[in-house]
Amino acid sequence: MDKEKIKINPEFYDIMPVEYQELVENATYGKEDRGWKDVGSSKELIEEHSLCAGCPESIAFRHILASLPNPEETVMVGSTGCTSLVFPHIALHNIHSLFGNQNAVASGLKRALAYRFPDKIKDVVVLAGDGATVDIGLDMTLQSWFRQEKFATICFDNELYANTGGQESGLMQKGFVGKMAPAGKQFEKVDMPGLAKTSGCHYVAMLTSSKPNRVEKVIRNAVLIAREIGPTYVQIYTPCILEIGKQMMEGLQEMRDSEGPGQRFEYQEFITDEAKAYMEAKHPKKKRKKKRVEEKKVD
């Protein structure tokens, strides 16, 4: 793991825009203990985004990219939706798949990479909206889990089709009236974590993106378990502030309000015994160096 593949030819170094110079000098490729704490002190793998100002998807995206264990050997598969506007701006291999097809594309990709690079670890990570994951792509999502395809699926759950103006999605809450769903949702929010468990996922987590350290832990688990054991699923609440009528500073509070005990985004985590044993053996918990804080003695 190193920066071998992102070397600027010396003849052109001085003419490259500064964001690329920073990327090769100061990005966290090849760093074993990357994490959300690098955000702000290292060059991020996301340059800029074209989401609405304050959109929680953008912060979730940044923390996910900061948490991937092996970014230089990772390919992300996206789908149509607000997230697809961010993918062109990330310094990571990625494929834009036709809306809903992301888990089918990722299945083929993961197999092809394993065949083509048998001696390398290559991670595949799907990141798509709830419409892509749970509605139009549900077949592909579930089938990839039934087949035990080894990649992680991350769903940005904003409980509607944001990019097309607020249509009803399977993950929308019952009773919610969307801008393009005026009759209100008649059915319950689909229990996707439940479906993931019964469909063969080895690690399932549901959370919001309000706590970066939690996002980091979950993403690391999901990617590492998918690498060797089998499919994993992560559902992150990234409220569409535009569609629920919030201001740009209100996304964080919306997530906090929705993750308390008994709320629909209360933190859930599930891991199979096999995955747990694998993680304990191969990727034991990172021991953070504790900073000794010298207490000032007051006379």
């Binding site: 593949k5 992102i6 070397k7 600027i8 030819n9 010396p10 003849e11 052109f12 490259m16």
Partner: peptide
């Protein structure tokens, strides 16, 4: 394809372009 030194050919092309 020539800005980045992703293989030997790209490196040689960079020299020629310069």
């Amino acid at each position: 394809l020539v800005l980045w030194g992703w293989n030997e050919n790209a490196e040689q092309k960079a020299t020629a372009i310069k």
